[in-house]
Amino acid sequence: MKKVSFKQQLLIELGITLGLFLLLQVLMNLGVITTYWKGIFITICINVILTVSLNITSGFLGELALGHAGFMAAGAYIAAVFSKSIALIPSVEFPLALLIGGLFAMLLGYLVSIPTLRLRGDYLAIITLAFGEIVRNVLLNIKFTGGAGGYSSIPKYTTFPWTFFLAAACVLLSRSLINSRQGRAIISIREDEIAAESSGIDTNKYKKLAFVYSAFFAGIAGALYAHYMGFLQPAYFNLDKSIEILVMCVLGGMGNITGSIISASILTILPEALRQIADYRMLVYSVVLIVMMLVKYAPQFQGLLAKFKHQKEEEA
């Protein structure tokens, strides 16, 4: 088989992305895809951004981050406050709001990364969890954004092309990050932090980079969500939301961007398509987490898998 160069692959992927976008856009314009499904597609794109960005910290850096909803909330609220208090033309205001949402989340990501650098994985999970809860608690107590009652009448700027291309940009950027020198440094920390450090990799710097990057996109996803719903409530950004993103990340495969896209799409559509089992959603998620981990890492299952593969090879 001829090896496809990176550039060629990029072109192919760009082609597929554009083609998919045009197809969806035409179908939407023709009314084949209803407004209801258009909403689902927007949610899918937002979830893709969230999942792919979480995958950078949890999948590639190998640190369990449980505060993704917190970054999302921060980005959502800041962007919403910005676009409500400033009156510019929407085509200028919206990108600015998105950027501000992303940058603010990025700043928080930087702040969170400082204490976590000194800590091992387990503590990091707890710190990010605490961070997410702090953000939610603070939002509940800010009178200015409506507290628990919610922040309403945010201009609804989010459209399908915006979310689609931002999701595509997030995927593309993440993939090039991972294939770059910086990305390899991040992966080396996951594989063996001490070995990475001894090889001269500034582990602190790359951990910060992964954190800040992931927070930035979570903030953008939040800003998109805010301008899509037009209404924000702190309760939405609870631990369940962070876990939901984690489930998408785990199901698609930690450290697999394509997997993240697929699982984010499936896990967004499934609960919509199967309304009657909506009550079981979180239960199914929890089972997914446990089973995925056992199948992937437990020696008993690996033995079984190896046996299965061996049998298949023999048959063939």
Binding site: L246, M282, Y285, S286, I290, M293
Partner: peptide, 22 residues
């Protein structure tokens, strides 16, 4: 079964357990 696996996979399983019970 995950005692020898990476820390993160154990943590994820523990979160899964917590949600399963709840």
């Amino acid at each position: 079964p995950l005692r020898k696996a990476s820390r993160i996979s154990l943590l994820i399983t523990a979160i899964g357990m917590s949600y399963l019970l709840q």
